[in-house]
Amino acid sequence: MTQSLRLKRLTLVAVLLALCVVGANVKIMGSIAFDSAPAFLGAILLGPIDGAFLGFFGHMVSAALSGFPLTLPIHLVIAVMMAICMFAFGWIRKRFGRSRLATIVISDIVGYLINVPLEIAPLYLMMNAAIFAFFIPLTIATVLNLVVCELVYAFLPQSIKTKPYLRSEIK
């Protein structure tokens, strides 16, 4: 990849990071916010590794802005689960096609399953039954973040979706 393409890719990562910070300020409950929509978008446009980075960073910023209400260790677990969620979401989109309807539905379902029920499992060990109070707000936030991501991606011009620095073959 040329220096110019690397710079454009890095710029897009920086813009998406900034959007994660903006979204982290739009709270639904506690540290649950709109920080993951840019991470989901980054996972589609840039791939699973960049998406995982954005998901981890987005949650940590959201939690920090809330004062780590559930403690730092719990938020680290959530951030790791967000990274796993974005990686799986981005991998599915990269592997099976970004715009195929079946791929979109499957990646969104997998994103939801990792971000809500599978994330609750390890947190149950740390928080016991209190974690279930987060199920509905987390479900609402995840669905809304996925909808925002899919709408933004759907309305992106094809010329942007096919830029060379976004191609999955480029490392």
Results as ranks from 00 to 15, higher is better:
5 L>E: 14
24 A>N: 01
153 Y>T: 07
120 I>S: 03
96 F>G: 09
19 L>A: 06
72 L>F: 15
123 L>V: 12
168 S>P: 00
152 V>P: 05
129 A>R: 13
74 I>S: 06
92 I>W: 04
113 L>P: 04
56 F>A: 10
15 V>P: 07
21 V>R: 01
106 I>D: 05
112 Y>I: 05
139 T>V: 11
135 F>G: 01
53 F>N: 00
141 A>S: 13
116 V>G: 11
49 I>A: 13
1 M>T: 08
150 E>R: 14
59 H>P: 02
105 V>Y: 01
169 E>R: 06
60 M>F: 10
117 P>C: 07
41 L>N: 02
22 V>K: 07
131 I>L: 10
117 P>I: 08
40 F>W: 01
55 G>W: 09
58 G>M: 03
167 R>H: 14
66 S>P: 04
37 A>L: 03
96 F>E: 08
99 S>Y: 09
139 T>D: 11
94 K>E: 13
166 L>D: 08
128 N>T: 11
162 T>E: 09
96 F>Y: 15
100 R>G: 15
43 A>E: 01
27 K>P: 00
166 L>F: 12
5 L>K: 12
84 I>C: 08
93 R>F: 07
136 I>G: 04
83 A>E: 01
111 G>P: 00
136 I>D: 08
147 V>S: 11
105 V>P: 01
62 S>T: 07
128 N>I: 02
132 F>S: 08
165 Y>A: 00
129 A>V: 14
130 A>D: 06
131 I>V: 15
140 I>S: 06
127 M>N: 05
63 A>C: 04
72 L>Q: 12
55 G>P: 04
52 A>L: 08
47 G>H: 06
79 A>N: 06
9 R>I: 01
34 F>K: 01
143 V>M: 07
10 L>G: 11
168 S>I: 03
114 I>E: 02
125 L>Y: 14
86 M>H: 09
40 F>S: 04
66 S>Y: 08
20 C>D: 04
111 G>V: 05
96 F>N: 10
95 R>N: 14
156 L>N: 10
141 A>K: 02
143 V>N: 01
108 D>K: 06
146 L>Q: 07
16 L>A: 00
144 L>M: 14
166 L>A: 09
97 G>S: 09
101 L>C: 08
121 A>T: 11
160 I>T: 10
93 R>I: 10
84 I>T: 07
21 V>T: 10
101 L>A: 15
144 L>S: 12
162 T>R: 14
32 I>Y: 08
65 L>Q: 13
11 T>N: 12
100 R>F: 15
150 E>W: 11
37 A>R: 00
120 I>G: 02
51 G>T: 10
14 A>T: 09
39 A>K: 05
70 L>E: 09
